[in-house]
Design a protein around this nucleic acid. Sequence first.
DNA 1: CAGGATCCATATGGATACTG
DNA 2: CAGTATCCATATGGATCCTG
Lengths: 112, 112
Amino acid sequence: MTEEDRKIRIRDVTDVLELIGGRWRGPILAYLCESPRRFSELKDTLEGITPRILIKELRYLEMNKMVYSEKSTISGNSVVYGLTEHGESIESVIVAIHAWAKEHRMKVFTDQ
Amino acid sequence: MTEEDRKIRIRDVTDVLELIGGRWRGPILAYLCESPRRFSELKDTLEGITPRILIKELRYLEMNKMVYSEKSTISGNSVVYGLTEHGESIESVIVAIHAWAKEHRMKVFTDQ
DNA sequence: CAGGATCCATATGGATACTG
DNA sequence: CAGTATCCATATGGATCCTG
């Protein structure tokens, strides 16, 4: 691997982790992998998140084309958030994270 | 999926992203996937990192059993950092990140 | 229900200089 | 070369209350 390749790879990791990292972005994406959800569902399932943070992160993810939002056609003033086609592709990373966690969480997170 | 399963999955994502997230932990692990490196190699390749941050993150990763350190047997006072067996397993996640980045970085990171 | 407004604590990380 | 020591800016995120 050339020095140049190495830097690109490191840059990639930096960028992706910026996109899905932080306290809530990964969890939001992981939850939305299952199906689109309303604001309040997100708020209730992502235990501990406040509306301010939630809307901020959703907007960030929208800006980065990972998430879309639309007013629910069913209920009056509810809004539904879901993964864009683009956002769905991140599931490959989420799956890898789940797999790793399942295999290793005991070893790392418990015996400290 | 039960509500309980969902929360476990979300928790997993939270935990793993805490472990490999942040500004430098992912990049450090990605770089060490290739081979063990000396402190100064890490410092030079991870452009922009300062020694204080580097040692702090290395210690964090050591505490979490992802990284080991040992005094180089070759050169006098150099120290070598590498992935533990455990740390190596995270390569599966790094690989997924690389793959995703290669496929999607243009779409997400450029047209903003 | 969806989201905005304010206020605030602290963690994160950067700059710089120094030491064994 | 491998770290330490200080100092400091700001981003991050939490708490609480409010509104269309």
